[in-house]
């Protein structure tokens, strides 16, 4: 399945395959990533981290190619100057200050020392670590460390950042803050983002497009709106008399399936609503909710992981 777009290509996987011995992490994968925020969704072990590392040039593909703006980072070292990477694992030194660390990382990305210092200070302010930047990173909380990790990925003002499970290990509050920061990075800073996650909630709220990976293959890809479109299903949630309702519906030729406290029916025509209303009255069920159901990412995810 290939998702194409008229927008300029940032990342492109062409027949991308990566094997570790007998294990296949990625199996002949094709997809494209364009400007904006793209989510790479999949359960643990789906190949998300492997894909990110291939795009960064940390790994060499077994077959196919992982191109970044038309270049292959594994071969073209200079092309990495416009990429940012926030790994999933710990990656911060404990004994130096955030300001010193970021200044150094900016220089390693090719920025001269004088500029590096102001970039470091700027980016720390943007991620909300203004006050604490002269404290050793070892004294930081998990949430603060996660912000430093994001800051080091942005310090050299890349065109594209790859974030590997940026919300891992954060409490609900910290997770919301991190997602907010990522959204700002994509929308206000104009930096494109590829973020991986195994939580649909992460990608659903902030991504423009989604690529679902499972078992080393792309199972779905497209704009978020495609994933959350209304489907042809009506959901009738009642407080009681659910069984009577199903019988009443059946009498009118409508097949309903029971899910929890709801009867779910396929929507066929506008007239159906009248029949449903009559069936509810006949069953003497107290109606709680009657609504078309939206396809949530939750379900896509459930589909892919089973």
């Amino acid at each position: 399945m290939v998702y194409t777009s008229p927008m300029p290509l940032l990342l492109e996987a062409k027949g991308l395959t990566k094997r570790y011995g007998a294990t296949i992490a990625l199996d002949d994968v094709n997809f494209q990533v364009v400007e904006g925020i793209t989510g790479l969704l999949g359960p643990n072990g789906a190949g998300k981290s492997t894909a990110i590392k291939l795009f960064l040039g940390l790994l060499e593909p077994t077959a196919g190619s992982a191109e970044v703006m038309g270049q292959r980072p594994y071969e073209s070292v200079e092309s990495r100057a416009h990429l940012g990477y926030m790994p999933e694992h710990d990656c911060l030194p404990a004994s130096i200050t955030a300001a010193e660390f970021l200044t150094h990382m900016a220089q390693v990305s090719g920025i001269p020392p004088a500029y590096a210092r102001t970039r470091a200070a700027d980016i720390l302010r943007h991620v909300g670590l203004d006050e604490e930047r002269y404290r050793s990173i070892g004294e930081y909380s998990t949430g603060m460390k996660q912000r430093v990790k994001l800051a080091q990925a942005l310090v050299h003002d890349p065109d594209l950042v790859l974030l590997d499970e940026p919300t891992a290990g954060l409490d609900p509050g910290g997770r919301e803050e991190m997602l907010g920061l990522i959204r700002r990075t994509g929308r206000e800073f104009g930096i494109s983002i590829l973020l991986s996650s195994h939580l649909m909630g992460d990608v659903e709220g902030i991504c423009d497009r989604i690529i679902v990976l499972d078992g080393g293959r792309v199972t779905e890809a497209g704009a978020v709106s495609l994933f959350t479109q209304e489907t042809q299903t009506l959901c009738i949630e009642v407080d009681d008399h659910l069984e009577e309702l199903v019988t009443a519906l059946a009498k009118r030729g409508i097949r309903a399936t029971v899910e929890g406290f709801s009867a779910v029916v396929e929507r066929e025509s506008e007239e159906q609503y009248d029949a449903i209303r009559d069936a509810i009255v006949e069953a003497d069920a107290r109606l709680r909710r009657l609504a078309p159901r939206r396809h949530r990412l939750t379900e896509i995810f459930r589909r892919t992981s089973t």
């Binding site: 960064l56 040039g57 940390l58 070292v77 200079e78 092309s79 990495r80 100057a81 990429l83 990477y85 790994p87 694992h89 710990d90 990656c91 911060l92 030194p93 404990a94 004994s95 990382m105 390693v108 990305s109 090719g110 080091q152």
Partner: peptide, 17 residues
């Protein structure tokens, strides 16, 4: 420390072999 703290992976995604 670069390997223990994981900083090495930040270096190797930058323009550096």
């Amino acid at each position: 420390p670069d390997r223990r703290d994981g900083v090495i992976s930040l270096y190797l995604v930058r323009p550096l072999t």
